[in-house]
Design a protein around this nucleic acid. Structure first.
Lengths: 142, 142
DNA sequence: CCCTTTAGTTGTCATTTGATAACAAAAAGG
DNA sequence: CCTTTTTGTTATCAAATGACAACTAAAGGG
């Protein structure tokens, strides 16, 4: 197994992961958010509160465009904004109740798809999967 | 380890995979193709020749929009078109020499990034990675 | 043949996304 | 204070994408 062959397998694997996650998050299109807006909300879910600059960095968007999308999310009532008292230039964003509820819906649906995939696997198989995830995340996808 | 916890790990893992592949294919932006056009070319690389209908299915694009993007790729000289003699409604697309060369460049760059990541791993570790990829692709991301 | 279905093209329009300039306000550092 | 830097907003504009109607041409089935 040459490095080239392994690389080919990684490419093919990444493509499968993309396909499956696209399939699992198809619930997004039932909601009134664009793909970019969804990415922002998803990022917000894992690290709250966040500033526009942090979002711009992590979601790979310019600051003006981030600001625009955040305004739209505010108008839709999916997130909330507050000034940072320590540095009043900074704006702290977090999910609103509605925003959290929306992500909960989407994730619940994605988890259902996942449950269907792993239904019927033994406890030992699940442990193997967990080990494989940790291994790859550490050595290849970090 | 509940199913929920495992699901969380899968979500986090998928996110890492997305990030790394985005990083690895950043060579795309040096080339004169849009993201959608790149996806079409990448699909063409793995299955040639393909019809517009097949592309529309696999790249998740309407047939009219697929047709438009294929016309642009033809104008850029990145792919070639031929009618299927067996069914003259069908158009068979494949990469041109230039298109193949472009993908070769992008993949060579991505592979360099990969090589840097796995540099210093032992043969046994590489085998473990290979096994982990196969396991996950079979049981979770199929 | 004629009718229906399939494959693809063309054109048009609205929305989303990306890029950039100009601006305002607060902080930081003399 | 005063200048510079950082953070964010607003306003435009161009390009990319998505959706859909109307059309052509070939195949398929009586």
């Amino acid at each position: 197994m040459s490095h080239s062959d392994l690389f080919q397998k990684v490419v093919s694997f990444a493509s499968s992961v993309h396909e499956v996650s696209h399939e699992m998050t198809r619930g997004v299109k039932n909601e009134d958010v664009t793909p970019v807006q969804y990415k922002i909300l998803e990022y917000m879910m894992f690290s709250q509160p966040v500033t526009p600059s942090q979002i711009a960095d992590c979601v790979d968007l310019s600051l003006p465009n981030t600001s625009r999308e955040l305004r739209k999310l505010l108008e839709k009532g999916l997130c909330e904004k507050a000034v940072d008292d320590a540095d009043r230039r900074r704006q702290l964003f977090r999910l609103s109740g509605d925003g959290q509820a929306m992500l909960d819906r989407i994730f619940a649906q994605a988890q259902q798809g996942f449950e269907r995939k792993i239904a019927g696997l033994s406890g030992e198989e699940l442990k193997e999967i967990e080990r494989a995830l940790a291994l790859l995340q550490k050595k290849v996808f970090k």
